[in-house]
Nucleic acid binder design. Structure first.
Length: 426
RNA sequence: GGAGGAAUGGCAGAGUGGUCGAUUGCGGCGGUCUUGAAAACCGUUGAGGGUUAAACCUCCGGGGGUUCGAAUCCCUCUUCCUCCGCCA
């Protein structure tokens, strides 16, 4: 949610920035300003009414104390009338405030100046591409075939237990996955991110805090009975750690990393592109989250990008980095870099990380503030990124590291897996 | 699951119908003193709305109610604590 303050001060710039998302926000923004105007005018009327009522109450109290109960009665009547007025005003005010809130929820974050305009993925900018692409011989297999051949992942078994998109990892497949989680957590920790373990179900307030609600409830699994949601990403519980918090400047930046499973309904996406590990309802991800002062948030974003890049370099997977265009960016983001790994057997790019700066958009909903140099409370900036999402990394490793007789394990993972090869041909 | 108790400012902890956004202590910040620091003393110190600035309004876990007036009384929800039961 955009801070109302900046909206009041800078509508033109905001409308202009939102145009990059292919959105004509002007009517929406004008309506918000009108609702805000209305809200404030009602607030003023209510405040004045309450002030008068407060004054009367004190007077009545004094009259009673000095034994002039008779005089008090007239004031009581007046007070009752004010109460009626304030009740009506209060209702109107609530309506106006609610309408304003709803309207504000509809406005996505303003893209950063470096974000290219565009309405879909074709307008994304490739900002980096790694050098080496493995050349696979004829007979190279996609990862779902490899998973079957070496008995690493059983998709059908998952269908039996739960449904499509809930794979069962087995043997070296399971071990490789655990190795990746440990490796990522260790690297993130070494880079100064504190490891946390967080709940995998969150309440409604948390969903609103990071912006999954009210717009994207369809994406989350809901546990109806208790009004809880299975997390679609660790971003939700980790960022909400700081909901309703006022931090000291000295505490910033905050850097956290968490491994969690992620649950996504992914309604309506079926077909060849979702085969195997390409798109799942449950998958594992290691996330990094930062809370920053506004001045430092873009440098932080750069650091996160460099860090994720170093993970992919270490795994020696071919990758590229995209700067997402306005239309392809998430609702809450101001600037997003996507990382994609080249899947040699499928001959396509697979998204393995998304690193974003949300500026004050989430912080505004979260009421995540800090005291600036003048000791004034200000909204902090939040950022997060995957470091990394597991399934497609696993897919990339299986496909890109395969040879005729098996799959080589990336060197940095061997201490974690305890084996250096899947299949034969040592 | 059953029975009791509790929720107040960064923390501790007063406050059971009126001038209480709230006594006090600790902590924080500023100052006096000091070569410097500590101690002592003085001052200051919640959040949001609103205003050029003020005035003013709201907030004592959340929501609702009683009353001219609620931190204080009533209802309800949530959370925590104690005891009992159950349990990895």
């Amino acid at each position: 949610m955009l801070p109302l303050q900046t909206l009041r001060e800078d509508v033109d710039r905001i409308a202009e920035a939102l145009a990059k998302r292919g959105l004509d926000a002007r009517p929406m923004l004008d309506e918000i300003l009108e609702l805000d105007e209305r809200r404030r005018s009602l607030q003023l009327q209510l405040d004045n009414t309450l002030a008068e009522a407060n004054r009367l109450s004190k007077e009545i109290g004094n009259l009673f104390k000095t034994g002039k109960a008779a005089e008090a009665q007239a004031l009581k009547d007046e007070s009752a009338r004010l109460k009626e007025t304030s009740k009506t005003l209060g209702e109107s005010l609530n309506e106006a405030a609610e309408a304003l809130q709803q309207a504000l929820y509809q406005v996505p974050n303003t893209p950063h100046e470096s974000v290219p305009a565009g309405k879909d993925a074709t307008a994304n900018q490739e900002v980096h591409r790694s050098g080496d692409h493995p050349q696979l011989g004829a007979g190279a297999l996609p990862h779902w075939e490899l998973a079957k051949k070496y008995d690493l992942i059983d998709f059908e078994l998952g269908v039996k237990i739960t449904g499509a998109g809930f794979p069962v990892y087995k043997g070296k497949g399971a071990r490789l996955q655990r190795a990746l989680i440990s490796y990522f957590l260790d690297r993130n920790t070494a880079a100064g991110y504190q490891e946390v373990q967080v709940p995998h179900l969150v309440n409604e307030a948390s969903g609103y805090g990071t912006g999954q609600l009210p717009d994207k409830e369809g994406q989350m699994y809901e546990v109806g009975e208790d009004r809880l949601y299975l997390i679609p990403t660790a971003e939700v519980p980790v960022t909400n750690l700081f909901r309703d918090v006022i931090l000291d400047r000295a505490e910033l930046p905050l850097k956290y990393t968490a491994y969690t499973p992620c649950f996504r309904r992914e309604a309506g996406s079926y077909g060849a592109h979702v085969r195997g590990l390409n798109r799942l309802h449950q998958f594992d991800k290691v996330e990094i989250v930062r809370v920053e002062q506004p001045e430092g948030s873009y440098q932080a974003l750069d650091e996160m990008v460099a860090h994720v890049q170093s993970l992919l370099e270490a795994l020696r997977l071919p990758y590229r980095i995209l700067r997402l265009c306005g239309g392809d960016m998430g609702f809450t983001s101001a600037l997003t870099y996507d990382f994609e790994v080249w899947s040699a057997a499928q001959e396509r790019w697979l998204e393995v990380s998304s690193v974003s700066n949300f500026e004050a958009f989430q912080a505004n909903r979260l009421k995540l503030r800090y005291r600036d140099a003048l000791n004034k409370t200000q909204l902090a900036h939040t950022l997060n990124g995957s470091a990394l999402a597991l399934p497609r990394i696993l897919a990339g490793i299986l496909e890109d590291y395969q040879d005729e007789t098996g799959i080589q394990i990336p060197e940095v993972l061997v201490p974690y897996t305890g084996f250096s090869r899947i299949g034969g041909g040592d």
